[in-house]
């Protein structure tokens, strides 16, 4: 039961983008951090700015 609630909470966080920064850090560590001259990951605030801009650059709401 607890496991199911945890899973649901996980999905809600993912749906709303609440955990977007954590996912970004994970992605960064996995794919980009290994390069020699890799830039450090963005700060939470900078990442959120970037994420929001890119989310709102196309058609994402309908009738």
């Amino acid at each position: 039961m607890l496991k199911k609630i945890k899973h649901l909470w996980h999905i809600i966080r993912q749906l709303s983008g609440d955990d977007a920064y954590e996912r970004y850090l994970k992605h960064h560590a996995e794919f980009h951090a290994s390069a020699v001259d890799a830039p450090p990951p963005l700060s939470r605030q900078d990442f959120f700015k970037y994420w929001q801009e890119s989310k709102w650059s196309g058609i994402n709401r309908c009738c």
């Binding site: 966080r13 983008g17 977007a20 920064y21 605030q45 959120f48």
Partner: peptide, 14 residues
């Protein structure tokens, strides 16, 4: 709130 006070805390702010 989401931009400056607690950046990216979407659920909390909502």
């Amino acid at each position: 709130y989401m931009r400056h006070i607690r950046p990216g805390r979407v659920l909390e702010a909502s």
